[in-house]
Design a protein around this nucleic acid. Structure first.
Lengths: 196, 196
DNA sequence: CAGACCATGTAAAACGTTACATGATTCG
DNA sequence: CGAATCATGTAACGTTTTACATGGTCTG
């Protein structure tokens, strides 16, 4: 059980439909969890069956009807229980780093290109997170908000996201630059044309 | 196919048995991939069937015999092909961040404790990675090694690991400190005893 | 009326985790 | 001789990904 708690935590900020939740998982929750809509719909059904969330049909006239969910008391209790037992350290999984690991044995050109693309993407994601931070704290400055704000959980995780994306951007940019500078000077094992 | 390429990349540095590979996946590869021994043994069998690695039985007298593997030309070609197509951005998955996201609605005490524990673990991991960096570049200084070294892939990914762990440590420490400082001053929604 | 977005799923395949199982060899 | 480490798996179970499928409503 894992996605379960991510969904519960995401629902704490108010009613959401599966579709809305999918959007949230693409932005605010994207820092620490990834899930496709199909997973979310399935999980919402299971969570409602378990009584951890309550669903309610919303009739819309301008759009298709939707079903929105709220966390129940049992749901909060489940989050409480989840938080009280230590989880194993997070794990990372990045194809790009596999490529960098192998870079001395293969053609570095596509790896460099992907590193540069990732640096741009990371900057864009950092920008989105920074917008979200501004939105979350409204007009208040960060220190005051963190000291006195009522809902700082999402702010703190978003702050983590900004740090991560900045660092990722730096590393990608530096690594790409380094590999590029070695292109002319240092020969490598790779024999172009050997691959198919 | 994903673990497949991580295994190939890890085998580029020389012959390894499944057991040795499991150790490598617990240290050097741990930055960007996680796998338990059972997965590795299964993957090695599949990779050998596919002709991407070649196995060889090593008779040992002081220890049980083992089977060691090397990447074949077809294996390098497969890595080459893998590196030439862009992969989707990495994903993160961290239970602790789910807990922080929910922290305004639950008892923050266990979350703070886990953040502090994680900060210590991150520092330890950073230390291990830094040792590995020293080992990889031997007596050479970093700039020279990165400019002229023959095998910089593992160094670059390890560098990424160090940055990540330091940043993670900072964020965990700061977040724990902040939540701790709010314990007395700011009341929260959580009603102790409501959870079971 | 086509394309974009809203809204929700089913089904199969691939992948990952957990529990269990076995046996060799060394060190204290 | 018990514990630690080396060495390699099988089987069951749970989760995630991919492909497919459907239909409403609005905007240009």
């Amino acid at each position: 059980m894992a996605l379960r708690h991510a969904v519960l935590a995401a629902l704490l900020d108010g009613e959401h439909s599966g579709y809305q939740l999918a959007k949230v998982f693409d932005t605010a929750v994207a820092n620490f969890w990834h899930a496709v809509p199909q997973q979310l719909y399935a999980e919402l059904t299971k969570l409602e069956e378990a009584g951890l969330i309550a669903g309610r049909l919303v009739i819309q006239h301008d759009r298709p009807n939707k079903r929105v969910y709220t966390v129940t008391e049992a749901g909060t209790a489940e989050l409480e229980r989840f938080a009280s037992v230590a989880s194993k350290p997070s794990f990372i999984r990045d194809d790009l780093l596999v490529k960098v690991q192998a870079v001395d044995h293969i053609d570095p050109a596509p790896v460099i290109a992907e590193l540069e693309e990732r640096a741009v993407q990371a900057a864009a994601k950092a920008g989105i997170f920074e917008q979200l931070l501004l939105f979350l704290r409204q007009d208040v400055d960060e220190d005051t908000f963190l000291r006195e704000g009522r809902r700082i959980g999402p702010y703190l995780t978003c702050l983590r996201g900004v740090l991560f994306e900045h660092e990722h951007q730096d590393w990608c940019r530096n690594t790409a630059k380094l590999l590029r500078s070695r292109l002319d000077t240092t020969p490598h094992d790779h024999v172009p044309g050997q691959a198919h």
